[in-house]
Nucleic acid binder design. Structure first.
Length: 367
DNA sequence: TCCTATT
């Protein structure tokens, strides 16, 4: 992976962005210490980290590998879009040993990966009160610095991150920015107090509102994607019934209304009879053959995600060219969903290629 | 008039 050789590159903080630690509310006695729970009971506040600004193409395995190099991991998760499976660019790592969490912050915070500079910090305790606390601010004076913007907003609560967008060519402020508060209620108060107000010395009032929620965008993108590509493509060598199922299921997933309830398929019995080693502790491994050289993980997420729980996808690439070698693997949790995906996608035409999809078979058992 | 931080 591109990041494996960069463990000790110098941290570079992106222009006009502040990365605020969890320090201000920490009561651990250290400037960057972990937040402690109110009851002082056993919790994961000293071991659980949030990692932000991860490269888009970083996988769960690479994520775990990077942070596992520090110490034993209790659990970790790369957060992905529920529908498309795309990485949302952040994740959580919970270490067994608090010392390793501290070490991970010291070692990996500010690490440059691809075009990104990752941020590693203690995760705040998960709570509904910290969600949707991101504000979009426009109409800012072009002269206002990120620090000045923070000063303006800090009277309403603890700021987690702030950013002013700049013209990519000139570097001058575009007069719009973001403020993420610790708590949603703080963000609400900032809207009440600052929306429509003129900052000191400014000639125009600023607009302060909640920032767009990224999940909506993804849902809309999926829906348009469905009409543009899926519906058209799904007229392949399949029965009406199967096509029907797939479109219904895709739409259900897109709208989040209901999940597929497994149905019995006669032809599944033959699938069950093949020499399966697709089953493992991690689920059912599926072999996908005849992918194009340009194929990436996202195509596998999009193909298999609608059929049920997908825990992992992998495109096998040539080491030198980084092009797909024509095949990949998908791991699905539930047998029925995996079988349905195979039955539906085997023989499916993807572009000008006919996919071959089956449970992964054991190489060792071949004659 | 939108950078992506809460599993």
């Amino acid at each position: 992976p591109p990041w494996s050789g960069h463990l000790f590159s110098q941290p570079i903080i992106s222009t006009m962005e502040t990365q605020v630690s969890n320090g201000p509310t920490s009561n651990s006695g250290l400037p960057n210490g972990p937040p402690l729970s109110a009851n002082g009971a056993a919790d994961d506040s000293k071991t659980n980290l949030i990692v932000n600004y991860l490269p888009q193409n970083m996988t769960q395995e690479e994520f775990k590998s990077l942070f596992g190099s520090i110490g034993e991991i209790e659990s970790c998760k790369l957060v992905r879009d529920k529908i498309t499976g795309q990485s949302l660019g952040y994740g959580f790592v919970n270490y067994v040993d608090p010392n390793d969490a501290d070490k991970a912050i010291n070692t990996l915070n500010g690490l440059k990966l691809q075009m990104k500079t990752i941020k590693v910090s203690y995760a705040r305790p998960s709570s509904a009160s910290i969600r949707d606390a991101n504000l979009y601010v426009s109409g800012l004076p072009k002269s206002m610095s990120q620090k000045e913007m923070e000063q303006l907003f800090s009277q309403y609560g603890r700021i987690i991150t702030s950013r002013i967008l700049v013209d990519q060519v000139t570097g001058v402020s575009r007069g719009v920015g973001f403020i993420r508060f610790d708590k949603r209620i703080e963000a609400e108060e900032a809207i009440k107090g600052l929306n429509g107000q003129k900052p000191l010395g400014a000639s125009e009032p600023i607009t302060v509102k909640f920032a767009n929620n990224p999940s909506q965008k993804t849902g809309q993108a999926l829906l348009s994607h469905l009409y543009q590509t899926t519906a058209r493509r799904y007229t392949g060598p399949l029965h009406h019934q199967t096509q029907r199922f797939r479109l219904d299921n895709l739409l259900n997933m897109a709208y989040g209304v209901k999940r597929f309830s497994p149905i019995t398929i006669d032809s599944m019995t033959s699938l069950a009879g093949v020499n399966l080693t697709g089953a493992s502790s991690g689920g059912w491994c599926i072999f996908v053959y005849n992918l194009s050289p340009e194929a990436d993980e996202s195509v596998l997420w999009q193909l298999f995600g609608p059929f049920g729980a997908v825990t992992n996808v992998k495109v096998i690439r040539d080491f030198a060219t980084n092009k797909c070698k024509g095949f990949g693997f998908v791991t699905m949790t539930n047998y029925e969903e995996a079988a349905m995906a195979i039955a539906s996608l085997n023989g499916y035409r993807l572009g000008d290629r006919i996919l071959q999809v089956s449970f992964k078979t054991s190489k060792q058992h071949k004659p």
